[in-house]
Simulated assay, not measured.
Amino acid sequence: MTYCHSKYQHLKPQINAFVKDFESKGDAVTVGQRNVIKSFEVDGVKLNIKSFKKPNAFNSFIYKWIRLSKAKRSFNYASRLIDCDISTPFPIAYIEETSFFGLKNSYYISEHIDYDFEFRALIHNPKFPDRALLLKQFAEFTFKLHQNNINFLDHSPGNTLILKTDKGYKFYLIDLNRMRFENMTFDKRMHNFRRMWLSKTMIKVIAKKYAELYNKPYQEIHDVMLKHSMAFQHKINRKKLRRSGRKMQFGTK
């Protein structure tokens, strides 16, 4: 089953052809253990096709009969973001290949974005040009998400693309299939920053701007954001240490 946005109905035959030849054609954008993204071009439109990993038998049944597939969720969530004036690559289509027993393969198709860098560039380079300005604008971008009751569960450094334009910087969200649309309490808002791997200096800048927008004391914003960020980073670092310890034990046997 192929569902195309009304704006792109005319591309439906070509999109189906791209998916049919997905293994052998297209330019690789991302090749991961779970998902593969390739770019194609048709009628002057460059698009990305994301092929999701084939689900196991249990999830196959779930995605067919109980829960929306990752492809359909990505399409729906992108549409909702755009309705809220939050930038994401425009959703063109999604495809689900099913049998009676469940979902076999699924694909999400969106417009290709020629971005300049990911948010992670700000983490690895403290002297990144316009870093303070970008952090303030990122605070505004995330605040807008929260004001629209959007809890982006994969809010992480690689999932925010940044494009430099004549009018300044523009932020795009990607990898959208994990979201909740719920009332964003103060603690949920601060908790939502935890995966961004913010340094203490970055937190100071972001917290100051967020406090201005949220009309809440800076110190309270800073302290709770710092608490959640440090707890997450310590948790991940402990996991890395445990894994490296197991590898060392295995290597000595």
Score class of each variant (00 low, 15 high):
residue 126 P to G: 02
residue 104 K to G: 08
residue 116 D to C: 04
residue 84 C to A: 12
residue 69 S to R: 05
residue 133 L to S: 11
residue 184 M to F: 01
residue 95 I to D: 03
residue 141 F to M: 04
residue 165 T to G: 06
residue 58 F to P: 01
residue 92 I to N: 01
residue 176 L to P: 01
residue 92 I to F: 04
residue 99 S to Y: 09
residue 105 N to D: 14
residue 114 D to Y: 15
residue 172 Y to W: 06
residue 64 K to Y: 02
residue 112 H to N: 10
residue 129 P to S: 13
residue 140 E to M: 15
residue 187 D to K: 06
residue 130 D to K: 00
residue 113 I to W: 00
residue 55 P to Y: 09
residue 91 P to F: 00
residue 104 K to D: 11
residue 194 R to F: 07
residue 90 F to C: 08
residue 186 F to G: 05
residue 164 K to D: 14
residue 151 N to K: 09
residue 115 Y to V: 01
residue 170 K to N: 03
residue 149 N to Y: 14
residue 123 I to T: 04
residue 96 E to S: 01
residue 161 L to G: 05
residue 188 K to R: 12
residue 148 N to Q: 05
residue 174 I to L: 08
residue 113 I to H: 00
residue 142 T to G: 05
residue 150 I to E: 10
residue 106 S to L: 02
residue 138 F to Y: 13
residue 112 H to K: 10
residue 155 H to S: 06
residue 80 R to C: 03
residue 135 L to Y: 08
residue 136 K to A: 13
residue 58 F to W: 15
residue 192 N to R: 10
residue 158 G to Q: 04
residue 68 L to E: 15
residue 144 K to M: 10
residue 65 W to F: 09
residue 183 N to I: 14
residue 134 L to M: 05
residue 122 L to R: 02
residue 190 M to D: 05
residue 123 I to Q: 05
residue 94 Y to G: 10
residue 69 S to D: 08
residue 123 I to N: 11
residue 99 S to G: 15
residue 178 R to Q: 13
residue 150 I to G: 03
residue 108 Y to Q: 02
residue 174 I to Y: 08
residue 68 L to F: 13
residue 89 P to I: 07
residue 156 S to R: 06
residue 89 P to D: 03
residue 66 I to E: 07
residue 124 H to I: 05
residue 169 Y to T: 06
residue 125 N to D: 15
residue 121 A to G: 07
residue 76 N to K: 09
residue 83 D to Q: 09
residue 97 E to V: 15
residue 144 K to D: 15
residue 111 E to P: 00
residue 176 L to R: 00
residue 64 K to F: 06
residue 137 Q to E: 14
residue 150 I to Q: 12
residue 144 K to R: 11
residue 165 T to N: 04
residue 132 A to S: 15
residue 147 Q to D: 13
residue 139 A to N: 03
residue 188 K to N: 14
residue 57 A to D: 05
residue 76 N to W: 02
residue 99 S to I: 14
residue 136 K to T: 13
residue 66 I to H: 08
residue 164 K to Q: 14
residue 104 K to H: 08
residue 128 F to P: 09
residue 182 E to Y: 02
residue 169 Y to E: 01
residue 151 N to P: 02
residue 179 M to T: 08
residue 72 K to W: 00
residue 173 L to E: 07
residue 62 I to E: 11
residue 106 S to C: 09
residue 155 H to D: 12
residue 128 F to G: 04
residue 152 F to P: 10
residue 98 T to H: 09
residue 90 F to N: 09
residue 76 N to E: 03
residue 125 N to Q: 10
residue 125 N to C: 10
residue 83 D to H: 07
residue 77 Y to W: 00
residue 186 F to T: 03
residue 156 S to I: 12
residue 157 P to K: 00
residue 61 F to W: 14
residue 67 R to V: 12
residue 177 N to I: 00
residue 116 D to A: 07
residue 107 Y to K: 00
residue 130 D to H: 08
residue 110 S to T: 08
residue 178 R to S: 09
residue 137 Q to H: 12
residue 173 L to A: 03
residue 80 R to M: 10
residue 75 F to K: 02
residue 190 M to Y: 05
residue 147 Q to V: 11
residue 127 K to S: 12
residue 177 N to E: 05
residue 131 R to T: 11
residue 62 I to T: 06
residue 81 L to H: 07
residue 82 I to P: 03
residue 183 N to A: 11
residue 163 L to I: 12
